[in-house]
Simulated scan of single mutants.
Amino acid sequence: MEFQTAFEVFIGLTLLAAGLLTLAFRNRQNPFIGVRIGYTYMSKEAWRKANTAGGLFFVGFSLFLVIMAIAGASIGAFLIVLIVGVLAGVGVSVAVAKRTYELEELSEEAPEKPTGERIEANIKPYLLV
């Protein structure tokens, strides 16, 4: 096996391991493995969904990279696909986490309901006219 092909397969298998670890640890929050952004730390459901989406994406993407490497893709094409794919995977994970967290926040009732009172505001002291 040529060095370039071995390198590309190694990168693909490394991403496969990262995707599988992300899937394995998706059910409990931790500071080491998985999608670790603000949304996922504030919501267990966002953590689970973001890590499931990210893990599945990276498992599939890594298999695509290994197939590309075995098929003999040039290093330039491989690196471009790698960069675009990693950015897409991160984007998908962040979007899923954000959407899940925001939907979770919207489903909670507000602490106080508006009373319907009209609030009078005097802004004349703040106008320079």
Rank of each mutant, 00 (worst) to 15 (best):
A46D: 09
L63G: 02
N30I: 06
F25Y: 15
L65I: 08
A69Y: 01
V86D: 01
L16F: 14
V84W: 09
V81H: 02
S43I: 10
A73V: 15
R48Y: 00
A24R: 15
A95G: 11
T52S: 04
L23I: 13
A46P: 08
G89D: 03
V66R: 03
F25R: 13
N27P: 11
K98I: 12
L15Y: 15
R26A: 03
F25K: 14
L15P: 02
T14Y: 08
A95I: 00
I75Q: 03
G55K: 07
R26W: 04
G54D: 10
F61E: 02
R48A: 03
A50D: 05
G91M: 12
G54R: 05
G12V: 09
L82H: 06
A24C: 04
A18S: 12
L23Y: 12
A46H: 09
L63R: 07
V86L: 04
R48H: 11
V92C: 03
E45Q: 13
R48K: 14
G91E: 13
V35H: 08
F57L: 05
G34Y: 02
R99N: 14
S74R: 11
L23A: 13
I83V: 14
G54F: 09
W47I: 07
M42W: 12
N27T: 09
L16K: 12
A88P: 01
I80C: 07
V84P: 11
A95Q: 14
F25V: 00
G89Q: 06
R36F: 10
S62G: 01
A97W: 01
M42P: 01
N51Y: 10
A73C: 11
I80E: 10
A97S: 09
I67F: 06
R36H: 13
G76H: 09
K49M: 15
F10I: 03
W47F: 09
F25N: 09
M68T: 10
Y39F: 15
G60D: 12
F57E: 08
I11M: 14
L21F: 15
T22K: 04
N30Y: 08
L13H: 02
V59F: 03
W47K: 02
S43K: 00
A53I: 11
A17E: 01
I67H: 01
A69W: 02
G60K: 06
P31C: 08
S93A: 15
R28G: 12
R99H: 15
A97Q: 06
V92E: 07
I37R: 08
S93I: 09
I80D: 05
G55S: 05
M68P: 10
F64R: 06
F61R: 06
V86C: 00
T52R: 00
R99A: 14
V59R: 04
G72I: 02
G60V: 03
T22A: 02
Y41I: 13
A97P: 10
T22I: 01
V81N: 00
V35G: 03
